[in-house]
Amino acid sequence: MKKTDYCNGFFLKAGKFILITEKKFMFFGIFFGLFLFFIPSIHGGMQQFLKGIPLLYSAFESATKLENTFVYPMLIVTIYNAVVLQVAIKRGFPGGWDTNIENGLPTAKEVNDRMLFPSSKNEAIVFSLWVILKIMAIFIWTWPFLLLGYFLRIGK
């Protein structure tokens, strides 16, 4: 059985999907954080524009006041990242990737170049957690702008 035969190539497709979309997720997170949290905090006109869109303005208000609706997801993503790393260290990342020697989890490019796809149930669990982590990373890129928006608003 080849590595790509496990689960009918689902993990191969997931790895390629992450490789293709990882930078897009990053740019979307930066764009989202910049235009929803940071710019409205410093530009009154943009804040007035957001007031016309109740859902976005509600997100802006909650985030830049660091209310629970934004603090808890930030904590969950941070804890999830630590859990995925610990599971990968304990169970081993697919393809023989050693998280201690290789300094953490692999990038999407390394997964696809070195064919680090699962060939057992334990490896499939770790790989699935890694894929979810990569998709959740979109929220990580909004945090700097969210925190800047918070500090700019309390400074007014």
Rank of each mutant, 00 (worst) to 15 (best):
N8W: 14
L34D: 06
Q47R: 13
L56T: 03
F38H: 10
K16V: 00
K51V: 04
K13W: 10
Q48W: 05
N8I: 13
F37A: 01
T69V: 04
I42K: 04
I18S: 08
A14R: 02
G44N: 11
G33L: 13
N8M: 14
N68F: 15
H43E: 06
Q47I: 02
M46I: 12
L12Q: 12
S58A: 10
G33Q: 09
K23D: 12
G9W: 07
Y6M: 09
T64H: 13
F37E: 02
G45D: 12
F10N: 03
E61G: 01
K51S: 05
G52P: 01
K51D: 03
I53K: 04
S62K: 06
C7T: 07
Y57W: 14
F37G: 00
Y6W: 12
T69G: 02
K65E: 15
F60V: 01
L56M: 13
L34S: 06
F11T: 06
T21W: 15
E22A: 14
Q48F: 06
F11Q: 04
G45W: 14
M46V: 13
F27C: 09
F32C: 00
Y57K: 03
Q48M: 11
I39G: 00
F31P: 10
T64L: 09
K16E: 05
G15L: 00
Q47F: 06
P40L: 02
I20C: 03
S41F: 12
L19F: 15
S58L: 05
H43D: 14
G15M: 00
N68Y: 14
M46P: 06
F31G: 13
L34V: 15
L12K: 09
I18Y: 08
F35V: 01
I42W: 05
K51N: 11
K16F: 03
G45F: 06
E67S: 06
L56W: 11
K24V: 10
L56E: 07
E22M: 10
S58Q: 14
F25R: 11
K16D: 02
L55P: 04
L55E: 11
M26F: 13
L66W: 14
Q47D: 12
I20K: 10
F60C: 00
F37K: 03
S62C: 01
